[in-house]
Design a binder for these strands. Sequence first.
DNA 1: GGATTATTTAGCCTATTCGCTAAATAACGC
DNA 2: GCGTTATTTAGCGAATAGGCTAAATAATCC
Lengths: 122, 122
Amino acid sequence: MKSAPALPDAYEAIFTALAHPARRRILISLNFAGGAMSAGQIAGLFGHAWPTTTRHLQLLEAAGLIEHRREGRTRLYRLHAPRLALARDWLAWFERDPATAEEKDDGTGPAPVPIEHRSRQS
Amino acid sequence: MKSAPALPDAYEAIFTALAHPARRRILISLNFAGGAMSAGQIAGLFGHAWPTTTRHLQLLEAAGLIEHRREGRTRLYRLHAPRLALARDWLAWFERDPATAEEKDDGTGPAPVPIEHRSRQS
DNA sequence: GGATTATTTAGCCTATTCGCTAAATAACGC
DNA sequence: GCGTTATTTAGCGAATAGGCTAAATAATCC
């Protein structure tokens, strides 16, 4: 998490990370694994070269979606679900009528949206 | 919708679309507009050149997230929320314990995940 | 009908992504 | 200590993304 970008850059990092099928598969596999998977195990999911997987893992970690710890020469990766929840929450805005969404503002749902408006778009 | 990619390519298109801040802003603005916005109105949200906005709109439309109709020389764009729901549902998998998720399979939630596993990853 | 307006298309350019192979680094086992 | 194994780093190259300006196309207005 220490390298995860601050909002709203986080959205860009997260959605970018989710945009590649290999990276989605990594997330799915980590989720199903429940605990952690080694880099080698993850690399074994794919037919492509291991360094390619390393690249993907680095990007997922930079986005804050996964994290790793070392155990000897093995690197164990695991999911960081709160980051995924960020994306989910952002998307949750679109299942509500904007008028009712404002009435139901509980301080958690609408947070992503105004911050996005204030991003460097000028 | 007629040009929207089939699953699981849809995920790539959708998350890619969401990865750029300008495109997220377009979606947010369309959502708040409630009905539709013209290309010019959308372009007016940004300081960048109008053709850049056109590019973003084309990508959003290819991903099935928005659609347009013509009214004379004006092009009106509107949100296609079911596509966003796809992404949300995919992400919804990560808020559940995998074991309980299988027990609660109602035919809507888990659909994105197995299809992803069958994608061309070999 | 010509000028104005709405919008896209075409093409250029720079930066980034994502695949690869080779090399490097470190841990492990005998 | 040396060979093996786990993993990343470095660098290359092709493809793509995303910005731009100029030009094109079509609708609208006077």
